Amino acid sequence: MHQVGQCYLSVASAVSHPALLKAVSEIIEVGSQGYPYTTVLTGIESGSPKLIEALMPGKAWPFKPLAWPEVVEQGFGLLNDNHWVPTGMLILGLPEEREEDVYETISLVERLKPYKSAFVPFLFKATSALRQEQSFHIRDVMSYHLELMKAVFDHNAYWGNRLITEHAGTSSLTRWLPPMASPIISWSVDRAYRKLFKEINARASRMT
């Protein structure tokens, strides 16, 4: 049987129809020795219920937008239970975004640490129904956005290392390489993060 790859999934749909997720998992035979897990993209966008309610209330349906963080966490748990590893997409610089909204997203990323998963942050681009808004650019990044990106990196490094170790097989190279490389990569990213953080704070000071 050929493996089936999934492209995109709504966590709200998974939470509202857990039996369907289980049935699909059984059909594609994920969780077997030859197919230990499958990956799927899912749009988290933000951990701020306020932004979800204002910009995309249908994303949480059939649940309330204010319950979005809980829906996401429950969805990640269900996906892991069925051998799915979600990659959550996040958007920086959404219209009406405030510092507290970004910290709510950081909090959600940290809450999801126990679940096998990854995150990919994107910059908001004004298009479709939001084409009248202002796009978000690198020059708009603030220190709290960097904190979010650092939280994303820490999460991805944590689970990336474990997934490689769990499923890389018995090769001596794949057994020792992740533990050796992970601290070096973490140190490099942390150094770059601190430099960017310092530059952004300096820029903010000049603007005030």
Rank of each mutant, 00 (worst) to 15 (best):
W187E: 07
V141H: 04
L78H: 07
S107Y: 07
M142C: 08
I200F: 08
L177M: 15
M89C: 05
Q132V: 07
R111H: 05
Y115W: 15
P179D: 06
D81L: 13
D81H: 13
I164R: 12
L92S: 02
A192K: 10
R194D: 08
V71H: 08
P178L: 13
F197E: 07
V102Y: 02
L177R: 14
P178F: 13
W84G: 00
F63H: 09
L108A: 05
I164K: 10
R98S: 10
Q134R: 15
H167D: 04
Y158A: 03
D140Y: 08
S182Q: 11
I184K: 13
P183R: 08
R203C: 04
L78N: 03
R111M: 07
K150E: 11
P62G: 09
E96P: 00
P69M: 11
W159P: 02
V141P: 01
F124A: 02
S135Q: 03
L163R: 05
S135D: 02
S171W: 06
E104L: 09
V189G: 00
L78T: 04
A204D: 08
D154A: 12
H83Y: 13
A192P: 00
Y103P: 00
H155L: 09
A60G: 06
L108G: 03
V109M: 05
L94E: 02
T165S: 15
L196C: 10
K59I: 14
L173S: 05
E199L: 14
L79T: 02
A168L: 07
S117E: 00
G88D: 01
L123T: 03
R139I: 11
I106M: 04
A126I: 06
V152R: 04
T127G: 07
V152P: 01
F124L: 04
E96D: 11
D154Y: 07
W84F: 15
K150Q: 14
L148A: 03
E70F: 13
M142P: 00
F119H: 04
R206G: 00
D101L: 07
E73I: 14
R162F: 04
L92W: 01
W159N: 01
Y144V: 12
F76P: 01
E97V: 09
G75A: 06
A202H: 13
A67D: 13
D101Y: 08
N80M: 10
L148C: 06
W61E: 08
W84C: 01
H167C: 06
F76E: 00
P121Y: 08
H145M: 05
K198S: 14
A181Q: 09
N201D: 06
D154F: 05
L90P: 00
T170M: 09
A202R: 13
E110H: 10
F122A: 11
E100Y: 09
V71I: 15
T165A: 14
